[in-house]
């Protein structure tokens, strides 16, 4: 039990130092702007199809599944606002972040893990290029900025999916549907939900980089790093979400 706890505290300490180094390196020049843009493209743009499909299905399914209950209570007209609120406040941020944990954290973990075990990171180090700044800072920053954008995109596509879902059994015009949605949306529905997505992105990027950067022991560790990155990032999303809900509840 004692060695297990010791190992857990050691890992927690190392992870904290890894995060601390990010905040130190991010303010020190040189800035790897080109690599940052490349990572934004890889993390953001290349995730759009996956996020679009997921967002659309979330809205569509949520509407179709909620409709019978809402009809039973005579609240069918509340369906657009109920679906959009559920999507924007909770479902779209968490599900999109989980999708990103699967795609981005595993991708970063595997890529950096592979670079680590094939000495590519060491090659950067001996070439006097700071691999942490070039590989880690750019990826964490890109994930932190791109995940919120992907979530907002998933929100919009999800609401549209809800419109399609509504029209499976009923009829409503696009303009009226969106009017219903916007009418019941408050600024305070959007703000906390958006703020927490920055934390989701930060942890997805950080955990992916940490697992990859610390891979050791050959090719098996690359798979392990990718797998561990997904599991830890997914868990961290739920923990951050729980904390965000508590904080939102406290202040708003």
């Amino acid at each position: 039990m004692v060695p297990f706890l010791k190992e857990q505290f050691t890992q927690a300490g190392k992870f904290s130092m890894f995060i601390g180094r990010f905040f130190k390196e991010i303010v020190l020049p040189p800035f790897q702007f080109n690599e940052f843009i490349r990572q934004c493209f890889a993390i953001g743009y290349k995730s759009l199809p996956l996020v679009s499909i997921t967002g659309f299905i979330m809205g569509l399914v949520l509407t179709i599944q909620s409709r019978p209950t809402m009809t039973k209570f005579g609240a069918e007209s509340w369906l657009p606002s109920m679906v959009s609120l559920s999507l924007i406040r909770e479902i779209a941020p968490v599900v999109t972040a989980l999708i990103c944990a699967g795609k981005i954290a595993s991708g970063i973990g595997a890529e950096l893990g592979s670079m680590k075990v094939t000495s590519q990171i060491d090659a950067m180090e001996v070439s006097a290029i700071n691999p942490y700044k070039y590989l880690v800072v750019t990826r964490i920053l890109a994930a932190t900025l791109m995940v919120p954008i992907l979530v907002i995109f998933a929100d919009v596509v999800g609401v549209f999916g809800g419109y399609i879902g509504y029209n499976v059994h009923g009829t409503i015009g696009l303009q009226r549907y969106f009017s219903e949605v916007i009418e019941h949306l408050d600024f305070l529905d959007l703000l906390p939900a958006t703020i927490k997505t920055f934390f989701f992105g930060f942890f997805i990027g950080t955990i992916g980089c940490y697992k990859g950067f610390n891979a050791s022991g050959g090719t098996a560790s690359v798979g392990l790093a990718a797998n561990s990155a997904v599991v830890t990032a997914s868990l961290s999303i739920f923990i951050v979400d729980m904390l965000a809900v508590q904080i939102t509840d406290l202040f708003f």
């Binding site: 670079m115 094939t118 000495s119 590519q120 060491d122 090659a123 180090e125 001996v126 070439s127 006097a128």
Partner: peptide
Amino acid sequence: RLRIGFLFQGGALY
């Protein structure tokens, strides 16, 4: 380090 070259066993090409 900039005055030293290092050839890795596996090449370590990016």
